[in-house]
Design a binder for these strands. Sequence first.
DNA 1: GGCGAATAAGGAACCGCTCCCACAAACAGA
DNA 2: TCTGTTTGTGGGAGCGGTTCCTTATTCGCC
Lengths: 343, 343
Amino acid sequence: MKTVTIFDIAQEAGVGKSTVSRVINGTGYVATETVDRVKRVMERYNYHPSAVARNLSKQESDTIGLILPEVNNPFFADILKGVSQMVDKCGYTLILCGSDNDTEKDFRALRAMHSQRVKGLIYVPACDYAEEETFRQMEGLLCQLGCPVVLLDRPIPKLNYDCVLTDNFSGAYAATEELIRAGHTEIGVVAGNMELFIGRERYEGYCKAMEQNGLKVHPEHIIYGQFDKQITYEKVKTLIQSGRMPTAFFVSNNLSEVGFLTAVHEMGLRIPEDVAFVSFDSIPGQDVFNMPYSCLEREVLRLGEQAAQLLFRRFDAPDRPLEKIVILPHVCLRGSERLVAGR
Amino acid sequence: MKTVTIFDIAQEAGVGKSTVSRVINGTGYVATETVDRVKRVMERYNYHPSAVARNLSKQESDTIGLILPEVNNPFFADILKGVSQMVDKCGYTLILCGSDNDTEKDFRALRAMHSQRVKGLIYVPACDYAEEETFRQMEGLLCQLGCPVVLLDRPIPKLNYDCVLTDNFSGAYAATEELIRAGHTEIGVVAGNMELFIGRERYEGYCKAMEQNGLKVHPEHIIYGQFDKQITYEKVKTLIQSGRMPTAFFVSNNLSEVGFLTAVHEMGLRIPEDVAFVSFDSIPGQDVFNMPYSCLEREVLRLGEQAAQLLFRRFDAPDRPLEKIVILPHVCLRGSERLVAGR
DNA sequence: GGCGAATAAGGAACCGCTCCCACAAACAGA
DNA sequence: TCTGTTTGTGGGAGCGGTTCCTTATTCGCC
């Protein structure tokens, strides 16, 4: 089945290919009857112009790139959904790459985006690129892209791009304060990946809330969970076994929560009777298991949508000043924060 | 920042552009020192050839299309991960479209894939296309693509393509039999979308198991949940309120399970004391909540990987006979299937 | 020393589309 | 009637690569 080209259509309709092109794009002058004739031929042949040829010719593509650290993490899956729907709605095509939180793959993804000459990129970096050398590499790749970029979820301060972020500090602060308000005085933290800005921000929000309320942060109550299920699980278990558990925890993200809860349940502790907690983001299925836990909520789908919209706005106005959208997660209390008397 | 082209590289290296092309592709004869020189120039300019131009020129692209019904459903997110990793590993680029289970969007996605001239497509259809008219449309679009297609998860019998499927009948049969073996005699079913082949297969597997074991299927114990959380939730709740619950259920998929469990928990029933069940696929977070439920398991990531591999194999051997990979889910018993005495 | 094969490199056509430009006809307005 | 503008159309260059074809060396071997 030979693919039909614009030339075939032109011949069949008895016009020049420029005329067909004009009909396709609705540009320039074409007689109404010519339009009809050409359209009928296109219909009959089921003709769809090659985006490849068009992109090359126009020197601008209709593809949007998206780079995600973990495509099957429910958080990023929701972001993907938001981006995908918006991209689709606006007539663009989505090119997706996953970096698996790996710097090397992140670079590969950026290079792929460049090769594909994407029109715009929505980028959740694999890491913070705090190290000078890798930062320069990443920056170079980004710059070489030569297209608008929206930084999503994980900020890289030194980078000047539009971004859609979360106020991690305030979120963590608010969550911790809820635990304090519930009466807890010994509050630990399952910190995230401290090499990530968002990890540090959340940790600092927690610390600040403690400090402002005159509470001390005990070093042994800080668990460095790396935003990782397994690591968190092991460290929490060890802490429980040591018998030095605080009465409550602020847990830094959904994967940490998985590890935390797995350990807690395995060791036979009850929530909130034996240990209370509030987490940043939540894991799906809480309602299902009838285990409503308190958490910081944000509309993840919207995050993706907003990133896409921001990108499109940038297309229309390349010189508009940089935009930074920061959303504030809201605390959602469902009981797991409570201090149960008589402990 | 003007993008550098093959011509710039050629000029800078003092060679013709065909020579540069030969260096890039490692084809034809080029003197080693010329290779070095050209490579250095490419390095220096950080040059990466435009995939767009190359694809047009070669009349064959390096992009793989993937169409999914729901990108943020954990099941499809895992498939995505599998496909994405394999595609990436083999040097291709992934173009993703979501259909939201909507026929119209499914068509749009297929057209987009055609416009992009993807090299191959991994396709999870939005529906079964049982209706003649839409089937013909879909078939036409698929045929027009003119590229290898792998049908994933949802079979369309009339279509002759490679496919990666699950033996839904046997899975459902095995799951139901486990309930019977556990001693249940009154077993209901949360059926899925009966307009989907996989929905009917699972339902029939359940029926067959009942029949073979001399058990009767009571019409009031059949819940038509449409693979939908909300619908399942409502119908299960109604059934519970009516007081005519069987002692066990076979639940047709992960979303049905969500609806089923939400209703069960809301109505204060315990598992397995008040009602037992085994589900097809599982929802994440069971270990976390310390609520291990029995289910049919399959390696979803592998499903995606295999689909990609099948596609690549087809690239190499277009004339190989069609391949049909069918995986068998295995029953994973964790207690929710038990019949508790004294009910 | 001569000749065919292997090696090396450039030129030009082409992929399918867009867009600029030239040109023709129709249609004003003075 | 003669310009000048609007309307309608086709031709051709160009986008950035690949690939075929041609030409120029070098090399091995009789």
